[in-house]
Write a protein that binds this DNA or RNA. Structure first.
Lengths: 248, 248
DNA sequence: CGTACTATTGAGCGACCTCAATTGGCGTGG
DNA sequence: CCACGCCAATTGAGGTCGCTCAATAGTACG
């Protein structure tokens, strides 16, 4: 087994340092999150609006489908998932969210949440009152732009997932998913090759449109093929290049 | 065969009437499109920004992946599709757009288009310069809200498609798709039961994550089961209730 | 009226699912 | 500290839904 897998929590440093202060100004995520590009008074105005920080236990729900939209949430640490249900219990996970990403924007049209949001591990979120944010965005050019950019980004991510589920084979989906986790971890200043999966195999399956057994089998097969090593929630990517090559 | 199917162009009335004038104020789509909720000077300001109308032939591309974002487009008549490509030619259609819907918002993040947009039939679009729209949205509260709402709506539609492709069986997907067309036609003031499919079976398959043969076979099976009648691009839904029941 | 494209239908196959048994990891209480 | 129980993950066997390949039929358009 790779030695990296023996230090599972090594990657958490950046995130846990972020606890020290509440101010967006001092947040390690400011260049990934809503404050990107804001300075001085604008940044202060945004900071004053961010209500309070809330800590979620693993499995705790941040909001449920149908609830009225009151807040957007910026993830400060931890990981979340959003999911949609089909009457008979079938579930589709529409996204996994990491620190610096925004939750709740799917609810602006209709003013009600269209999915459930649940913490995959202990997580901290910043609460941003939607009404006041919208108002502030009118006064601060950069904030409006940032908000539009974030929403557009969400549309892009969903199209990409659509492409994955609609047109990729099972093994391509799993690899593409790992690749995406790798990129996002790297953006957070964490390792691009040693990935912590915050979610279960079931969740991965419900995200990729696969059965959990298929996900598990593919992990094993990729391991045999030398693409990666798996140990529970920890995946070490042996060769990012080889993975990229297989994704065309 | 249903008599409705013998009058294929009957549904086009509303749309073709929209040609008479350019002003948003007088557009039959104003309550579906960007101007929703705008009045007086605000509406005039928006109108003055909408550059010119452009007519697309069937198969003509409005924009391609990778092109810089210059305009958003509001569909005035006809129908469009947006699609994403996978290196080896596999394609995923991410949406079909009908009059009153906006194209291009996926490009705001990154300032480049992330998909191709192509006309499914002769179509008219209004061109809205993105830079100026963003600026105007800062000054007009309702416009900013409308823009955010439209983007959020797009996120919602994509999640729904995700749920369809990820967790529904082939027959459920096709029915859900027809059901969605039915609702959208009704919103445009057209029939909810007599649907014109502007796209090929191939396109439907590429949208639903199915082979074109599967789509065709299911149309035939639904016809045998008495759910609908098909004749080329025209589908008559015999019982919306029965369809809704099968969708749970 | 012919040509080219699109849609339908059939046969056979394979990827992924379902069901089921086993193994492994981890917290809890004896 | 170990034993137990619980849940997550792995692995196997067999079935099926939807795909691929291929032939035919229908439709649009010059």
């Amino acid at each position: 087994m790779s030695k990296v897998l023996t230090t599972p929590e090594a990657g958490a440093t950046v995130v846990s340092m972020a606890n020290v202060k509440t101010a967006c100004k001092d947040c390690s995520l400011r260049d990934l999150c809503l404050p990107l590009g804001l300075h001085g008074d604008d940044l202060t105005a945004l900071e004053q609006m961010v209500r309070r920080r809330r800590t979620l236990r693993k499995g705790e729900q941040l909001y449920r489908m149908g609830e009225p939209l009151k807040m957007l949430y910026a993830i400060r640490s931890g990981a979340m998932k959003t999911s949609e249900l089909l009457g008979d219990g079938r579930i589709q996970i529409t996204g996994f969210q990491l620190p610096g990403e925004i939750l709740g924007i799917e609810a602006i049209d209709g003013e009600r949440h269209r999915c459930d949001a649940e913490a995959l591990s202990v997580s901290e979120v910043c609460e941003i009152p939607w009404g006041r944010l919208e108002e502030l965005a009118r006064r601060i050019t950069g904030l409006q732009h940032q908000l539009l950019r974030l929403m557009s980004g969400e549309i892009g991510r969903e199209s990409k997932l659509l492409l994955m589920i609609g047109k990729m084979s099972a093994d391509e989906r799993v690899l593409a998913c790992l690749h995406s986790f790798s990129e996002r971890q790297a953006r957070l200043g964490l390792s691009a090759t040693d990935i912590k999966l915050h979610m279960s195999r079931q969740d991965l399956g419900d995200y990729l449109g696969l059965a959990l057994e298929t996900v598990s089998r593919l992990f094993s097969r990729f391991q045999e093929e030398g693409l990666l090593t798996v140990r529970g929630k920890y995946v070490h990517l042996t060769s990012l290049e080889a993975i990229q090559r297989r994704l065309g």
